Simulated scan of single mutants.
Amino acid sequence: MNGWTGLKKYFKGTNFLTLMFSMMREVTIDNTPPAMTVEVTTDQPAYAPGDEVTVLVNLRNFASNDHGYSYMNFTVQYDSEVFDNSEYLVQSAYSDSAFTPGNEVSNIFQFNFMNPVDGGIYFGMNSTMRGIDIQVETNSKHTQIPAVDQTLVTFKLRVKEHTLASASTISLANEFTRIRTSEAGNSVYLYSPDITVHTSEPVAIIPTPQVSVYSMGPNVNAHRLA
């Protein structure tokens, strides 16, 4: 017992504990640079009810000396009370005419760009948010999705007809991001790099102006029954 007391006194009189916690902190800090920046944008900043919205998923700012990826999976979230895409879907998947793979991944002989799939994003929770699952994979381990600035995909939503004036954000749900790369003698593995998400600007919904029948003025003759 006296030995343990003496040991505690020794540690108390030194900087041992401070050094130990400092070392632990240094070990747990992740200094890995972000693999890329993902930004979700729309073709216009504002829309009226009933307007079609084109959504773009943009990849930017890849890490230096990044050789590319064999698989990418992103989920874009939107509020289903404001936007709808049912006219573009066939059994929950986008039809071929309703989305466009970016130039870097549009070659079907090199890349398998799966039709984006729409579904609930927060499973088991009562939420109006829905997620569009976007996946692209190389057809060969020797092929890579280039690590260059690119628009990965564009797809369509439509503002619901009776949506009131508001603002709603279409953005990346980064917790569902998955990326795969090929390194070390073509060994393939999944990892979750730090993705810098560029905050999406809210999309403004502007109501269509209503024209009143009384706005024609008192001097305009209306058709009357004889």
Rank of each mutant, 00 (worst) to 15 (best):
M1Q: 10
N2S: 03
T5L: 04
F11D: 00
K12P: 15
F16E: 04
L17Y: 04
R25G: 12
E26N: 14
I29Y: 00
D30P: 04
D30E: 04
N31Y: 02
P34E: 08
A46E: 13
Y47V: 05
E52R: 14
L59E: 06
L59P: 07
A63C: 00
N65G: 02
D66E: 14
Y71H: 05
M72G: 03
E81N: 03
V82I: 12
S92A: 14
A98E: 12
F99P: 07
P101Y: 03
G102R: 09
N103D: 14
S106L: 00
N107M: 07
I108L: 10
I108V: 14
V117W: 02
D118K: 11
G119D: 09
G120I: 14
I121Q: 00
Y122G: 09
T128L: 11
R130H: 06
R130G: 02
I134N: 00
T138K: 04
S140T: 01
H142V: 03
Q144H: 10
P146K: 09
D149F: 06
Q150F: 05
K156Q: 15
L157P: 01
R158S: 07
V159K: 08
E161M: 10
E161V: 13
H162I: 03
S166T: 14
A167N: 15
S168A: 11
S168P: 05
T169P: 04
S187A: 13
S187Q: 12
S192E: 06
V197E: 12
V197M: 03
V197Q: 03
V197T: 08
S200K: 10
E201G: 07
E201P: 07
P202E: 01
I205Q: 02
Q210I: 14
P218Q: 06
N221C: 15
A222K: 15
